[in-house]
Design a protein around this nucleic acid. Structure first.
Length: 481
RNA sequence: GGCCCCAUCGUCUAGUGGUUAGGACAUCGGCCUCUCACGCCGGUAACGCGAGUUCGAACCUCGCUGGGGUCACCA
């Protein structure tokens, strides 16, 4: 098999869209599976939108996801530079070649003239798409009064252009629907189709991957390759990620920037897993490690239908990944989320490490984990509802008795506590329910938590007793209505 | 509207001429139980429509309908 060279070429627009991430992911998986090369290229020719900050977001996003690139910004490579805005000389050269061969021409029409022509077209002729007919296509003399021009491609009007898409089937587009699209702006900045072709060509890309919304650009690009006398790469067009209601997924529908998932406490592998599985399958398997993804990925099983974003399934995948993550890792990753809620803890904090096994099956995200361990590490905060319902005078004595009962339990471990407390309940003909909830609220401040004895063990004897007694006092003095 | 793409449970999908149409999420019911989860057991739920090819179509062909994309000096 020949070498695999693929690229991800986002335009920095403020955030990295999860739809784009999926495109990047499939390409990356393909490269890694084949020991090929994954290139990151920044398409920053739209100077209005491209900012240093946006570029940083792209790099941060890719790094957080662990989609490492072999060539691109900050790592370099033989085919650089990897920012389109720094490759202007290259585009000029190729434009010159097309000009020389007659496959391109200079067009002096102003934006206003084109806009007027478009308006006139829409007024008179409602059917068909508008295509600007440049008077300079057929060799009119350059005007004397203006020198700004764009370079347009001289698109063929006959025949058709097609390719065998790796994901879809054969696609053919009649050439008479093509327009003389612009290659270079007056300022030398290339437009998408031209920049993309020159870059894919000079970077030796063997498979061009992109979203479904780009199928329309492929025929023009193939025309460009032909005009330049080179063989086009293969193309793979990924179906889109749609919103739950079937619209194009945008900020309106869900968190679309990957970094938002980082901030919510998702794991990179979970994001990759969910996105991979949205539009690709491997039999009945739902949960994949990164390594499994690399091993099992195949273009054959990338579907051709657009997928809808499903937040619940995403969360489920995240839960599964959290569960298989070793406790030490969970602890380490939870630290920053603890800091965010005002708890300074170290990753090797023994209380944190002890609590995690109990908290993990009850959490989906790292933010959930942080919240769930907060009362072990920090001060207790009572939920108003639980406090009002369970910390009432009639429960006060039970709490005190419980505190006294466990005073001498050694070792202070859940099995032993279970035995002692249940024995006491039985002897006094007290149902567990009667005591458990008040004690839970006393120790955690909440009505929902891990098992009572697990909480006691993690909290330790001193804190457990202190909290039971404090709550008992609170309960005794509570007024009932 | 032109051009292009797409069509299996609500959602993601398996399925490549013969299956009780499978799995997962969601949903509903149950078990477990000190709460909440986890886990386990079970239920509801799909081949858009119409022709054709064939002994036989979810699978092949055509049409229709529906959805999406795109018609820029954005990418």
């Amino acid at each position: 098999m020949s070498e695999v060279r693929v690229r991800f070429a986002p335009s920095p627009t403020g955030y990295l869209h999860i739809g784009g991430v999926r495109t990047a992911l499939y390409s990356w998986l393909w490269a890694r599976q084949n020991r090929g090369t994954f290139i990151l290229r920044i398409e920053d020719t739209d100077q209005e939108r491209s900012t240093a900050k946006s570029i940083q977001v792209v790099l941060d996003s890719m790094r957080w996801l662990g989609l490492d690139w072999d060539e691109g910004p900050e790592v370099g490579g033989e085919h650089g530079p990897y920012f389109q805005s720094e490759r202007l000389g290259l585009y000029a050269d190729y434009a010159e070649r097309l000009l020389a061969s007659g496959d391109a021409y200079r067009c002096y029409a102003t934006k206003q003239e084109i806009a007027d022509a478009r308006d006139a077209f829409h007024k008179t002729n409602a059917k068909g798409g508008f295509r600007f007919q440049s008077p300079w296509r057929d060799g009119a003399d350059p005007p004397k009064d203006r020198d700004a021009y764009v370079i347009r491609f001289r698109a063929p009007r006959e025949g058709s252009t097609g390719w065998d898409d790796v994901i879809k089937r054969r696609i053919d587009v009649p050439n008479d629907t093509q327009q003389d699209f612009i290659l270079l702006r007056p300022n030398g900045m290339p437009l998408y189709n031209f920049g993309c072709v020159v870059d894919d060509l000079t970077m030796g890309v063997t498979l061009a991957t992109r979203g479904d919304d780009h199928v329309i650009n492929t025929a023009p690009q193939i025309l460009l390759y032909k005009a330049l006398g080179v063989e086009p790469p293969k193309f793979a067009h990924m179906p889109m990620v749609l919103a739950p209601n079937g619209e194009k997924l945008s900020k309106r529908h869900a968190a679309v920037g990957v970094l938002e998932y980082r901030d919510m406490g998702y794991l990179p592998d979970a994001v990759l897993n969910y996105l991979a599985r949205l539009g690709w399958s491997h039999g009945d398997q739902e949960i994949f490690t990164r390594q499994e993804l690399i091993e099992k990925f195949s273009w054959d099983h990338v579907g051709s239908t657009a997928g809808r974003y499903d937040a619940k399934k995403f969360l489920y995948v995240q839960e599964e990944h959290l569960r298989t993550l070793p406790d030490g890792e969970v602890a380490r990753l939870t630290v920053p989320f603890l800091a965010r809620i005002g708890i300074a803890a170290q990753a090797d904090d023994p209380v944190l490490l002890e609590a995690i096994p109990y908290v993990k099956p009850r959490s989906a995200t790292l933010a959930d984990v942080a919240d769930a361990v907060s009362y072990f590490l920090g001060e207790i905060e009572f939920e108003e509802k639980g406090k009002r319902k369970f910390l009432v005078p009639e429960n006060a004595s039970h709490l005190v008795q419980l505190a006294e009962l466990i005073e001498n339990v050694e070792p202070f471990e859940k099995e032993k506590l279970d035995e002692v407390v249940k024995g006491w309940l039985e002897a006094n003909e007290l149902p567990m329910k009667k005591v458990a909830q008040p004690a839970r609220v006393a120790m955690t401040g909440r009505t929902r938590s891990p098992g009572l004895f697990e909480v006691m063990e993690v909290l330790g004897k001193d804190k457990t007793i202190a909290r039971l007694r404090a709550a008992a006092e609170l309960a005794a003095s509570a007024t009932t209505h």
